[in-house]
Write a protein that binds this DNA or RNA. Structure first.
Length: 201
DNA sequence: CGTCGGATTATCT
DNA sequence: GATAATCCGACGT
């Protein structure tokens, strides 16, 4: 069930960004397990992607996480408020990553409701990368964690979306990346209510 | 329903 | 000192 480390060493981040749709992201914090089905992702294409923190091979204290072998988490603070969770993929020194933008609550919904202070029936509880991370209790202490470990991991529950159900479009909030902002590297499940807006191409 | 702008801080220049 | 892979409450329609 738990995805092996070898899963993340695939060097095709565009494939993995789509393949992660339907996989289930778990966290365990102080004995509290929460999990959500991944329904929206974005691919960040390493050193060649102007929207990537590792564009041009940039290495800083923050981006060093991205240069790990695939299968670790990359969590950073955005706009001073929001924690964004990424899956580092590919091999060591090839800094590809997949941003998890939305999840569908799957386990521990009551805990998510407390963390988000809203009912799980509301799509906003885990729609958008900042909200999804908060629902799962992810903060910067989850940076550089082994995704085959016991604090945060991803399982395959055989949830499969037909290719017709997987939509693609430009990534969100990356206008600064110029021509790379137009690349259709955002993937989401058609019609799923937890997908963040805009949920059309 | 849609649009607008303030929040809040690690990180980089 | 400026920026940022965003969110949410306030307001107008």
């Amino acid at each position: 069930m738990k995805l092996p480390l070898s899963y993340y060493s695939n060097q095709d981040v565009l494939f993995l960004a789509q393949d992660l749709l339907g996989k289930v992201l778990f966290t365990e914090i102080d004995g509290n397990v929460t999990a959500g089905i991944i329904v929206e992702t974005e691919a960040y294409f390493g050193v060649k992607d102007k929207a990537s923190h590792a564009y041009g091979g940039r290495r800083t204290d923050r981006t060093e996480t991205l240069y790990n072998h695939g299968g670790v988490s990359y969590v950073y603070l955005c706009y001073g408020i929001h924690h964004l969770f990424n899956v580092v993929t590919s091999v060591k020194d090839d800094p590809h990553a997949v941003l998890v933008r939305a999840i569908e609550p799957f386990m521990g919904k009551e805990i998510m409701e407390l963390r988000r202070n809203m009912p799980a029936s509301k799509a906003a509880i885990s729609s958008g990368p900042g909200s999804a991370a908060k629902a799962l209790g992810i903060d910067r202490s989850f940076n550089k964690k082994d995704l085959a470990g016991t604090e945060i991991w991803i399982e395959d529950h055989g949830i499969f979306y037909h290719p017709d159900e997987i939509m693609e479009g430009p990534r969100i909030g990356v206008a600064y990346a110029q021509e790379d902002a137009l690349l259709p590297w955002r993937f989401f499940v058609k019609g799923n209510k937890y997908v963040s807006k805009p949920n059309k191409i």
